[in-house]
Amino acid sequence: MTIDEIKSPENLVYAKPRLLNDRHMHYCPGCSHGVVHRIVAEVLEEMGQDNNTIAVAPVGCAVFAYNYIDVDWIEASHGRAPAVATAAKRLNPDRLVFTYQGDGDLAAIGTAETIHAANRGENITIIFINNAIYGMTGGQMAPTTLEGMKTSTTPYGRQPELNGYPLVITPLLAQLPGTCYVTRQAVHTPAAVAKAKKAIRRAFQSSLDKRGTSIVEIVSTCSSGWKQTPEKANQWMVENMFPAYPPGDLKNFKD
C-alpha cells in the first residue's frame, strides 16, 4: 500500500469541516481564532445545526467571522453582540444563537451587555476569545492584559496603579444565576482542542435546551500582538496566561 493509496475516503480521519468554507482567513499565521472557527464549524456540523443557527460576530479581529463559517450571521457593533443575540434568540427561540467575541468587545466596551444578557439567562452561548490584547487595532492594552504585560498602550508594561487590574470576568459571570455553564479552555495542543470542542458542544446543546447562558472562554494567543512566533506564543500563554486564567470549568450542571 502506497501513501497515495492510503488517501482514500474509507481511511479519512480528519478533513476541514464543510461549514468552514474555502475563503482564505485573514488571521495572522498561528492565530487561535482559526482553530476556534474550525471547531465551531465542526460542532455545528456534527450537531446538524447548519440550518438552524444565527451567529453574531463582534468588532475586533473576528469581525469577519461571517466570511468563513457558512451559517447566517449578524455583525454587531462593538460590544453589543449579547444584545443583538438576545433579540435574535427571543424572536427566534428555536434557533441556536451564539456570539463570538474578543476580550475588548466582551469585557471592556460590552461589559454591560455581557453581564446583563448572562444575568437574564438568555439562552445563548458566548464564545469569548481572551488573548489579553487588542489585535485588530494593533496590539493595545485589553481589559484582560496581564500585569506587567507590554502592549502598544502600555509600552512599559501594565501597571495596576496606572492602568487598573486585569479584568477576570468569567468568574463574575459564573456567579450569575442566569448562567448554566461557564468554562475556560485553550486550543494550544491537540488534547486542549478536543476539550475545547467538547465544551463548545456542551454550550450549544445547553442553549438549544434553554438552560440559560453558556460562556466558553478560550485563552488564546496573539502572536502578532505579543510579538512572538506562534509556538513561542503558546508557551508564553501556558507560562503567563494560565496562572491568571487557569483552564477548567467554573460552573457546570449535572446531566
Partner: peptide
C-alpha cells in the same frame, strides 16, 4: 491528526489505515 487538530487554517486532511 494532531497536526490537523491544532491547524488554525484547516489546511490538513488526515488518513489512517484501518
Amino acid at each position: 491528526a494532531a497536526c490537523a487538530a491544532v491547524c488554525p487554517d484547516g489546511c490538513i486532511t488526515v488518513y489512517r489505515v484501518r
